[in-house]
Design a binder for these strands. Structure first.
Lengths: 195, 195
DNA sequence: CACACAGTATACCGATCTGTATAGTGAAGG
DNA sequence: CCTTCACTATACAGATCGGTATACTGTGTG
């Protein structure tokens, strides 16, 4: 649950966890191609031998990095939505609140999926379905919530919320204006009120 | 006009132009760090000596790549906006039409500025002001147009249009749903109508 | 006890990376 | 005529890349 079923995963030993944690920090901050496996191993306090015993290749570290982020984001989001109660409008706004809290915790460099996509050209890359899978999942989430508010406009409303959300992550990452996610939340509220 | 004034530019000889053209294609498709200067030189039909005589270092190629894209986008956008006439609402919609036409011409991998930002960690990087400069310029454009429609809401409307626009580029790049830019255009129309 | 297994430490491989050096060509311009 | 300059061709340097090899340690379990 959370990660794509067709994606191959690895055994999560303690050393493997430290590798993922180091990779998440480094990949997100500096980019995937800019970070070498030697650095990841050093930052994780793990030898390259161990790293390759667990992951096999760098590509797999990227896969685990994205799958782990995706998984943690969905748990994080579920917590925020549950705390917001059953009202669909409140749950929509909770998504934006979750995004803001997530950015505060994990850094303001935009969406790791979008950033990874910028560096991955091949659609056959094993990380590809994780990236597109998360985005499609988010669209479904928005569309389902929109359907509880205005069933006959679910598609249009869901896509509008998705556009605002993605735009907010980019604007927040590039610091185009202050509190971009909060601004998007306001706009989402207006869109729902109009429907 | 178009590019940042503080950014250092190079002499555009024919060989330099071919380098930029090759770099634009390769950087956008595969990412900046994934593309080496040897490949750029080969694709441009230029020796590495010439490449380094013109640009000095790879970083400068990145700068010219982004500055050139920015410049060409602004011209492209100006053409579309002028063709749309003087009505501010029509000019706003023309931005989305221009974005759609641009994507059709240049490929659907999202915004090159956003993608470049994913690979550039250091804010002191010479390409940084080009990236943020373009986004701030776009926000000003939207805000100014919004000011002609509803002066007292210019800020909020401008930011809303910006969010929709950035979201559209991401959604288009990741193919989350068909014609994301067109959907954003519709949403922009609704936002303007409500104001 | 023996064995599997997660781990350390270190050295190495071939490829590729950014960037430089050397030598020479062809054309424009005072 | 001779300098300047944009360019080709090729070879190379030093670093770093992803990935492998060898040898060993500690620990828990059948």
């Amino acid at each position: 649950m959370g990660s794509n079923e067709t994606t191959q995963r690895i055994t999560m030993t303690p050393a493997a966890r430290r590798v993922i944690e180091a990779a998440e920090r480094l990949f997100y901050e500096r980019g995937i191609h800019a970070v070498g496996v030697d650095l990841i191993a050093a930052e994780a306090g793990v030898t390259k031998k161990t790293l390759y015993d667990r992951f096999g290749c760098k590509e797999q570290i990227v896969v685990e990095y994205l799958a782990d982020r995706d998984e943690r984001w969905r748990v994080f989001l579920a917590d925020h939505m549950n705390a917001a109660g059953p009202t669909p409008a409140a749950r929509v706004l909770a998504v934006f609140d979750a995004a803001r809290a997530w950015a505060a915790q994990h850094g303001h460099k935009g969406c790791s999926m979008v950033n990874a996509h910028a560096e991955i050209s091949d659609p056959a890359h094993p990380a590809y379905p994780i990236i597109t899978g998360q985005k499609r999942w988010m669209l479904t989430l928005f569309t389902d919530l929109a359907g509880e508010i205005a069933p006959e406009q679910a598609g249009r409303l869901g896509r509008a919320l998705m556009l605002l959300h993605e735009g907010a992550l980019v604007a927040e990452g590039l610091s185009i204006f202050p509190d971009a996610i909060g601004q998007a939340r306001e706009q989402a509220q207006a869109v729902l009120a109009a429907a």
